[in-house]
């Protein structure tokens, strides 16, 4: 049993894993955005950004999530989170 408990200690506890997986699943369940609409928005974002920088469309990740507001209220707000990898190493030189 010793090695098992060590193994559990070294990584995240299973309840934490459950919590974070649930949060993810629930946010996508709650998202009002249909997959088609999501795809359209994604394409539009790619179009606009590609005007300025060369982006890696494969690594692209855009989703609507509930995020905590950065103030004392502790409330939450729906937000579009986009992680868009840029191909160019020094993107903004002119």
């Amino acid at each position: 049993m010793g090695f098992l408990s060590n193994w559990f200690k070294s990584s995240e506890s299973s309840s934490d894993i459950a919590k974070s997986r649930l949060k993810l699943a629930i946010t996508s369940d709650r998202a009002v955005c249909s997959p088609e609409l999501m795809e359209q928005m994604k394409n539009d974002i790619i179009q606009v950004i590609s005007k300025y920088v060369d982006i890696d469309t494969k690594g692209l990740d855009i989703k609507v999530t509930r995020t905590e507001i950065d103030d004392e209220s502790g409330g939450t707000v729906n937000a579009v989170l986009a992680s868009i990898p840029i191909k160019d190493k020094r993107p903004f030189r002119r």
Binding site: S13, S14, S15, D16, A18, K19, K23, I26
Partner: peptide, 16 residues
Amino acid sequence: MVKEGNMMSSDDVVEI
């Protein structure tokens, strides 16, 4: 199980 971290606590569930 909650104490061992192998079950979500009621607080966790309420938070979600």
